[in-house]
């Protein structure tokens, strides 16, 4: 952790130096200081004015949380079903194999056709991005619960309900959590593009970057990218902490 901070700090320093010396053209890519100033400007003045950074962040988070949440509550039960039943698996596999390789962004036109411009469209794109990793890892986890564990639970008197809650669920949790982390990563990555489909109320980090582009403010574009990167790292760390907690003893 300390090493990571050190290398990151060193890189920032060198980058700033290169920008100050004119090695990196400030018109092509903003310097760290310019980015920091940009972030402060968006928070204090707003982009466009009165549209502050924390509201953009809140809006984007709400969007990702909605898309991801929908994916979670639909993909986990469906994944359990696919993992548990070889019949369902055989039936759904061809459809899934066909749908999975289609990138979420390729759905944008159809999403706009179905849902119009705005929150529902963007939410749908993020949902698609998160859905498949969660679904596939859940199915994989449930399918691969060691038979020996199920048997020993039965021998100790577990009934079907207890088998599900106390064996299948905890045993497939590592795989489900992996799916959730992957899904969250993809959800966050599709966010910007999803917001490029347009958002009606003028909020969102992706929308904010588009505004910066319209204003030809390179520093603010880079500031938006930096904010997205930082939040992405924080989300990943948060999920990592949660998964460590959930997977005690299983790693």
């Amino acid at each position: 952790m300390r090493k990571a901070l050190f290398s990151f700090g060193l890189l920032l320093g060198l980058w700033q130096l290169a920008s100050s010396l004119g090695i990196i053209n400030e018109l092509r890519f903003a310097s760290p200081l310019a980015i920091l100033r940009g972030i402060i400007e968006i928070e204090e003045i707003g982009l466009p004015p009165d549209y502050y950074l924390h509201t953009h962040i809140y809006y984007s988070m709400k969007l990702v949380a909605s898309g991801f949440g929908l994916a979670l509550i639909s993909a986990i039960p469906l994944g359990v079903l696919i993992g548990a039943s070889s019949k369902v698996r055989a039936f759904l596999r061809p459809v899934l194999e066909f749908l999975r390789p289609i990138p979420p962004l390729a759905w944008i036109p159809i999403a706009m056709l179905w849902f119009g411009i705005g929150f529902p469209s963007a939410c749908f794109i993020i949902f698609l991005g998160a859905f498949f990793p969660i679904l596939l890892d859940t199915a994989h986890g449930v399918e691969n619960v060691p038979k020996g564990l199920v048997d020993s639970a039965k021998i100790l008197g577990a009934k079907p309900k207890e088998l599900w809650l106390k064996v299948y669920l905890p045993a497939s949790l590592p795989s489900i959590v992996t799916g959730l982390r992957l899904g969250m990563g993809i959800a966050w990555m599709t966010l910007v593009a999803a917001e490029f489909t347009g958002v009606q109320d003028g909020y969102g980090l992706g929308y904010m970057i588009m505004t910066a582009r319209d204003l030809q403010r390179l520093d603010l574009i880079c500031a938006g990218m930096a904010v997205i990167g930082i939040i992405g790292i924080l989300l990943e760390r948060l999920l990592q902490l949660i998964s460590h907690f959930l997977l005690r003893g299983q790693e």
């Binding site: 020996g148 020993s152 639970a153 100790l156 207890e162 064996v167 045993a171 003893g249 299983q250």
Partner: peptide
């Protein structure tokens, strides 16, 4: 059995308590 099949997500104590839980 030889494979033991202890539940890896349960502590020793929670493993032993499993049958009583059932």
């Amino acid at each position: 059995s030889q494979e033991l099949n202890l539940f890896p997500w349960r502590t020793a104590l929670e493993n032993v308590a499993f049958g009583l839980e059932m």
